[in-house]
């Protein structure tokens, strides 16, 4: 029947267009560089001040996102902030003397953790703590420091 063929064609076109739209939205219009949950591992890092860092903030290595901040808590003994980082399992061989610092993308952009690997032969394993960290740069502190120094001159 001609009629039902036209109908099937229309429906086929509709479904195909819809699926293409979903795929384009999913693959072309969003970042799929996700941490694969099944293969990820967790590191922790202590900071004096995390600034504007939030859960799901990116963790980067040389600018490439390799993980996300999974949770942020306060260590009840030291009163310092502890961030757990969920790192993509493809990057397992981070040296033990990796340095974690909190940076800001641009002047007012979102904050993220940048990892800088050291030269140690042994690697960080799941659950390990990154020993060397540098806290967030708080703009107000720098400005007041600057003004204070100026005033002192």
């Amino acid at each position: 029947m001609d009629n039902s063929r036209a109908l099937e064609l229309a429906v086929g076109g509709f479904v195909a267009a819809g699926i293409v739209a979903v795929l384009v939205l999913a693959l072309q219009m969003s970042n799929l560089t996700q941490v694969r949950v099944d293969d990820a591992y967790t590191l922790t890092a202590e900071f004096d001040n995390i600034g504007g860092l939030t859960v799901r903030s990116p963790v980067k290595l040389s600018g490439v996102t390799i993980g996300r901040v999974d949770a942020i808590a306060i260590d009840p003994k030291t009163f310092r902030a502890v961030a757990s980082l969920r790192i993509d399992g493809r990057y397992r061989n981070l040296p033990q003397d990796t340095f974690a610092s909190i940076y800001t993308a641009g002047l007012l952009g979102e904050q993220f953790i940048e990892l800088a690997p050291g030269g140690e032969e042994r690697f960080l394993a799941d659950g390990d703590r990154i020993a060397m960290t540098q806290s967030a740069v708080v703009l107000e502190k720098i400005i007041s420091q600057f003004l204070y120094d100026k005033a002192a001159e």
Binding site: V22, L25, A26, Q28, M29, S30, N31, Q34, R56
Partner: peptide, 16 residues
């Protein structure tokens, strides 16, 4: 900017 900030499982999947 769009591609960088729209998150696949945060935004797209939730929308679906």
């Amino acid at each position: 900017q769009l591609v960088r900030q729209v998150d696949f499982d945060e935004d797209t999947v939730n929308g679906i």
